[in-house]
Amino acid sequence: MMMLICVSFLIASFFAMNIGAGGAAATMGVAYGAGAVRSRKVALWISGVGVFLGATLGGDEVAKTISGEIIPDSMLTPHLAVIILASACTSLFIANRLGLPLSTSEVTVGSVVGAGIALHNVFWSNLVLIVALWILIPVTACGLAWITGRVIAVMKPRFEHFHWWKGKRWLPILLVLTGFLEAVSAGMNNVANAVGPLVGTGMISLSQGILFGGFFVALGSILLGGRVLETNGKRITHLSMVEGCAISGIGAFLVIGASLMGIPLPLTQVTSSAIIGTGMAREGFSWKQKLVIEQMLKVWLVSPLFSLVITYGLVKGGMKDFYSMVAVISVFLATWGSISLMQSVQKEKRSLHEDGGGI
Rank of each mutant, 00 (worst) to 15 (best):
Q269T: 09
V242M: 09
V255L: 10
F215C: 14
S207T: 15
G244L: 06
I236G: 03
A218C: 12
V270E: 05
M241D: 07
L229S: 07
P266E: 03
T231L: 14
A258W: 03
S205F: 06
T237F: 04
V217T: 15
L265P: 06
M241R: 07
L219W: 07
E230T: 09
P264K: 08
F212K: 09
P264Y: 11
I276G: 08
A218V: 13
S240W: 03
G257D: 01
R235K: 14
E230C: 10
G244T: 10
H238R: 09
L239S: 10
I210L: 15
A274H: 04
S221L: 02
G262Q: 12
G249D: 04
S248D: 11
F253K: 01
V242H: 03
L265N: 08
I250P: 00
V217D: 01
I236W: 05
G257E: 02
G284T: 09
I222T: 15
T278M: 09
P266H: 13
S221E: 11
G262C: 15
G225N: 04
I204H: 00
F215H: 10
F253A: 13
E230D: 15
G225C: 07
E243G: 13
Q269G: 04
L206G: 10
L219H: 00
G220F: 10
G244P: 05
S259A: 13
F212C: 10
T237W: 00
S248N: 13
M280D: 00
C245Y: 03
A218E: 09
V255E: 00
V217K: 08
I236S: 07
F216Q: 08
I250N: 06
I222R: 01
V242Q: 09
H238S: 11
C245R: 00
A246K: 11
V228C: 06
N232R: 06
G213A: 15
G262N: 09
S207R: 13
S240N: 11
L260P: 01
I256L: 08
P264R: 09
G244E: 02
A246Y: 01
S273L: 06
I275P: 01
G244A: 02
G209N: 08
G209T: 12
G213T: 12
V242E: 14
L219D: 06
E243L: 06
I247E: 02
T268A: 13
A274S: 15
I276Q: 03
Q208M: 13
S248F: 00
G209R: 04
K234M: 06
E283N: 14
T237Y: 01
G284V: 11
M241C: 07
I236Q: 01
A258R: 11
L211G: 13
L224A: 14
R235N: 13
L254K: 04
L219C: 13
V228L: 06
G257Q: 02
A281K: 09
I275F: 11
G251K: 02
M241L: 09
F253N: 02
I256H: 00
G213Q: 07
S272F: 01
A274T: 12
I263M: 14
I275Y: 05
L260Y: 12
L224S: 12
A281S: 11
V228K: 11
L206Y: 08
I210V: 13
